[in-house]
């Protein structure tokens, strides 16, 4: 039975290449290549694998500037059938609330055309790292959401169920879920395969379908772009590097004396830690205003 999978993607600056202006705290985007958000590369790959198994259509959509067409082209190279670029100046400066409204509304329109069985999002975008858009879309569409998905154990479009593995803090959760479902995926969800040549030839002349703020779907002007975005960024800053603590070599038999001496020599702080510790994270010693010393004594197992 043919399935319809929608993959939402984002074109992001390659943050492995990016630098931050130390004065303004903003990204220096000049000369930084734009790439398809890495988690979505794998989301798309999962979509293409499922399409190969069950037959059907993979639709990719993105909201972004015209240059994002390049990211959609990359998806067509990897096997997507259809690419939609939602692009309009009116969408500019959208936060995750406005973005999830636009994507949810667009997917509802696609669903009306051809019912959607599976919605795939990356776990998060490597530029904003919020991980909010996928769950936001699921909430608006009233479909179940499973975040941090790492494996599709079973996908049954006839019974309309799937078994999904997702990473949680204490291990892996295996969930039996009804379709349609929205997954935000980790990179393990599917290994990227080399696209066949025919895809490359097809993608070379690919032009995305362009959706504006008013057609073919009329988005609510109050919920898009800067108007629909209540988020205010107060300030951005680069976290400063932690300075290494100071090491004090102590006589294993009498660590306390060494600590006391070190503290006496430096009454106003400066983290100190013992050299003969057997655990803990002495590098994180923080002192002022309250003095905390990570001095771990020898354990009986040493």
């Amino acid at each position: 039975m043919a399935i319809h999978i929608v993959v939402a993607i984002k074109q992001v600056p390659d943050t492995s290449n990016v630098r931050i202006n130390p004065e303004t705290g903003t990204l220096i985007r000049e000369g930084v290549p734009s790439i398809l958000n890495p988690y979505e590369v794998h989301a798309l790959e999962l979509a293409v694998r499922l399409k190969e198994l069950h037959g059907g259509t993979v639709t990719v959509l993105t909201m972004g500037p015209p240059a994002a067409a390049e990211a959609l082209r990359e998806c067509v190279e990897q096997g997507a059938d259809r690419g939609i670029l939602i692009s309009d100046r009116k969408f500019a400066a959208a936060d995750t609330l406005a973005t999830s409204y636009v994507l949810a509304t667009a997917i509802q329109a696609l669903d009306a055309e051809l019912p959607v069985d599976l919605l795939l999002f990356g776990k998060q975008a490597i530029d904003g790292d919020t991980a909010q858009v996928g769950p936001g879309v699921a909430t608006r569409m009233d479909v179940p959401v499973l975040s941090c998905a790492i494996k599709v154990e079973r996908f049954d479009p006839v019974a309309r169920t799937a078994v999904i593995h997702r990473r949680v803090a204490r291990g892996i959760e295996v969930v039996n879920v009804r379709l349609p479902v929205l997954l935000t995926v980790e990179k393990e969800i599917a290994a990227v395969q080399r696209a066949p040549l025919a895809n490359m030839l097809r993608a070379v002349n690919f032009q995305p379908e362009l959706w504006s703020a008013s057609a073919p779907v009329a988005f609510d002007p109050a919920q898009i772009g800067i108007k629909g975005s209540p988020t205010i960024v107060g300030a951005a800053h680069t976290p400063s590097l932690k300075k290494a603590g100071e090491r004090v070599t102590a006589n294993p038999g009498a660590p306390a004396e060494a600590v006391a001496a070190a503290l006496a020599a430096r009454p106003h702080g400066g983290g100190s830690c013992l050299d003969h510790h057997s655990g803990g994270t002495p590098g994180e010693a923080e002192v002022s205003p309250k003095i905390i010393v990570w001095g771990v004594c020898r354990s009986p197992y040493d």
Binding site: Q193, R194, A195, P196, L197, A198, M200
Partner: peptide, 9 residues
């Protein structure tokens, strides 16, 4: 022959 699957032209 290219290095892609089904890669002959």
């Amino acid at each position: 022959r290219t290095d892609r699957p089904d890669g002959d032209v």
